[in-house]
Design a protein around this nucleic acid. Structure first.
Lengths: 329, 329
DNA sequence: TATGAAAATGTAAACGATTTCATTGTGGAA
DNA sequence: TTCCACAATGAAATCGTTTACATTTTCATA
C-alpha cells in the first residue's frame, strides 16, 4: 500500500506538492498536477485518513446516542442526520446505550479519546451531569429528548402543545373519558405531555382523573398492551386513550382487538410520533407527526456549527396532528 | 488537552514508560506505575486514538452495509454485530446504501482510506464485482444476503428449505391455491425461495402456476399492498399467500382487511423474517424466524478473524417456522 | 539584461501514540 | 566484592499526513 512519500518520489516532486494536489490547492501548476495525478493512478494510491486525521486533530466522525435501535421513531431522524453529515464529509457512529450508564460511558470515551468530534444525544435517560460536563469541552447537541436548562443546545417540538392538540381532538369528537398512557415523569417530555393533556381537559371543564393516568416503564409495544389491559379493567372505562408513543398505542390497539372490542367504535386511540408502522396497523393510527427528518438535519447542522467552534441556538420545530382511522368514528 | 509527552514529563519518566502503563505491560515497576497513574489523573489525560490508530495502522471501526435502515429485519442482526464488536473493542459504522452504487462507493472508500478495518455487507444489491475486488485486499463478510460463488465468506440460512417448509405448512392445513409474493430474481435468495416453493407444491402433486407468482420491486409495506391488490383481483383467487418478507406480508394483511376479507378465514398469510412487528399485527403473522441475532454475532466474529488475517469458512444457520394467527385456521 | 513580485515548489516540523533497540539498575550467586 | 542475568527504563524511529516557512522559478517590466 503506497503512501504519500512513494507517490512524491514516483512523480519526482515533494510530499508537500502531492498533498497540495490531494487537497485541491490552486498553487500547483497544471503540469506538475498532471504528473502527480499520474503517479497516484499508477501506484493505486489512496490517502490514509489515519495520517490525515492525526495531523488535523479530527476524526470526522460524530456519535448518535439512542436508547435502542428498536424504536422506529429514531429511524427518520437518523436519516436526516446522516444525509447532512455525509454532505459535510462526516460519518456517523450509531450508539445504542440501552439507557445503561456503562455503555453510555464507552461512547463518551470515544469523544474523550478523539475518536469522535461530537455527539447528538437522543437518549432521554442520558446521565445529564456527565453530559453537561462533557459539553464544556466537546460539541454536543440534544435532539428530541433534552434535559432542560443545562445549557446544551437542543432541537425539539413543543410537547405540551402537541399533547394539548391531540387530546383536544378527542374532546372535539365527543370523548370525555380519556385515558393517558404516559411514561415515567422523570422525563421532561412526559411531564410536558401530561400538562398538555391536563390543559385540554380543563379547557373543556373536565377535571383530571388520576385513575385515568397510566405510567409505563418503557415506550414499547408490550408496555402498551399491559397498560391497556389495566385500562380495560376499569369499572368506569374510558372511551379514548392518548398514548405518548406510537408503539404504546399499537400495543393498546392489539389489546383492544384481542378483547373483542373495536377501534374506534368502542375505544378511540391516539399515538405520538407517526412512525411508519402507524400507517400499517388495522385500523391506521391517529398520531402526532413529529418532523423527524427535519429534526435530524437540523441537529446535524447545529452540531457541525458547534464543532467549528460557533455558538448555536436551540430550535423548536412544528408538529402536526394526523387524523386517521383510529379516531375517525 | 494533555498528551503523552506532558504526562511523561509530569511523572518524570519517558513516554515509552507511560505507553507501557497505558497498555498494561508487565515490565513496569509498581513504583513507577503509580507515579504515572497519578500524573494521568492530575493532568486529566486521555490517550488519543488518532495517534494510536496511526501508529497501529488500524481504525478499530467496521462497516455494516445495509440497503435501508427502515427494514426492521436488520435491527437484530445489527445488535448481534454490535455486541461482539464492542466486546472486541471495535465500533460500528452503520452505512445505508439505498442500493445506490454511488453511496456504496463512499463507504467502500472508507476502507480504502483506512478509516475502517472491514465490512459486513447485508446489501443484496451490492455491486458484486467491486465487492469481490475489495475482498482481495480487505476483510469482508457477507451476512444474510450473499452473492454466491464469489469467494467471500458468508453467513446465511438455507433459504430453499425455509421456503419449502413455509409452503408445506400451508399445504398441510389444506391450501392448494397458494400465491407467492417474491422479489426480483436477480437476488439469489429470491431464486432460492422460489425453488423451495416449487418443491413443496410438486411434492403435493401441484403444478406451479405462474399466475400465482408476483414480483415486487422492494420488500416494503406498500409493495405488499400493491401485490395483494392484484392477487385479490384474480378470477381464480388463491386462498393463501406466502410472502418473502414480513413487511410484504403485513402490507398484504392490511390490503386483505381493507377489502373486507378476513385472515386466515378467507386468506392465510405467511411472512418471512420474524421482525418484531410481525407479532403486533392483527392477526399476528405466521413467519419464518431467521436467527438474526446469531447471524449478527457470527458475522462479527468471522470478520474479526478475517481482520486478524485468518481464513474463515462460511456458515449456514438454522431457521424456524413460527405458526401464529394468520394461518391458524 | 537586470530586477523583483508573484507563483511554484521544497524542507522540515508538527500531530500523538507504539515499539525496537540500547542502556541503566537490581539482586543473587560465586 | 565481583559478575552476570534479567528487569526496568529511555532514546529515537515510525506510522502518513498537513502546513508554516524557506527557497527557487517564472516572467513582465524597466
Amino acid at each position: 500500500m503506497a503512501n504519500i512519500q512513494q507517490v512524491a518520489k514516483h512523480a519526482g516532486v515533494s510530499v508537500a506538492t502531492v498533498s497540495r494536489v490531494l487537497n485541491d490547492q490552486n498553487t500547483v501548476s497544471s503540469k506538475t498536477r498532471l504528473k502527480v495525478e499520474e503517479a497516484i493512478k499508477e501506484l493505486n494510491y489512496e490517502p490514509s485518513m489515519l495520517g490525515r486525521n492525526l495531523r488535523n486533530s479530527e476524526s470526522r466522525i460524530v456519535l448518535i446516542l439512542i436508547p435502542t435501535i428498536s424504536n422506529p421513531f429514531y429511524l427518520e431522524i437518523i436519516k436526516g442526520i446522516e444525509n447532512v453529515a455525509i454532505s459535510h464529509n462526516y460519518n456517523i457512529l450509531l450508539c445504542e446505550t440501552d439507557s445503561d450508564p456503562e455503555k453510555e460511558n464507552i461512547y463518551f470515551d470515544l469523544v474523550r479519546k478523539k475518536m469522535a468530534d461530537g455527539i447528538i444525544s437522543m437518549d432521554p435517560a442520558v446521565n445529564v451531569e456527565t453530559l453537561k460536563q462533557l459539553a464544556e469541552k466537546y460539541a454536543i447537541i440534544q435532539c428530541s429528548e433534552y434535559g432542560g436548562g443545562i445549557g446544551i443546545p437542543y432541537v425539539t417540538i413543543d410537547n405540551e402543545e402537541a399533547s394539548y392538540r391531540a387530546v383536544k381532538h378527542l374532546l372535539q369528537i365527543g370523548h370525555t373519558k380519556i385515558a393517558l398512557m404516559n411514561t415515567d415523569e422523570k422525563f421532561l417530555y412526559a411531564r410536558e405531555r401530561k400538562m398538555g393533556y391536563e390543559r385540554a381537559l380543563k379547557e373543556h371543564g373536565i377535571e383530571m382523573n388520576n385513575n385515568y393516568i397510566f405510567y409505563t416503564k418503557d415506550l414499547g409495544f408490550e408496555n402498551g398492551q399491559q397498560a391497556m389491559k389495566k385500562i380495560l379493567n376499569l369499572k368506569q372505562r374510558p372511551t379514548a386513550v392518548f398514548a405518548v408513543s406510537d408503539l404504546l398505542a399499537i400495543g393498546a390497539l392489539k389489546e383492544i382487538n384481542a378483547s373483542g372490542l373495536s377501534v374506534p367504535g368502542d375505544m378511540a386511540v391516539v399515538g405520538f410520533d407517526k412512525i411508519d408502522f402507524s400507517n400499517m396497523t388495522n385500523p391506521t393510527l391517529t398520531t402526532i407527526a413529529q418532523p423527524m427528518y427535519k429534526m435530524g438535519t437540523t441537529a446535524a447542522k447545529m452540531l457541525i456549527e458547534k464543532i467549528r467552534g460557533n455558538k448555536v441556538d436551540s430550535v423548536v420545530l412544528d408538529f402536526e396532528l394526523v387524523i386517521r382511522e383510529s379516531t375517525a368514528g
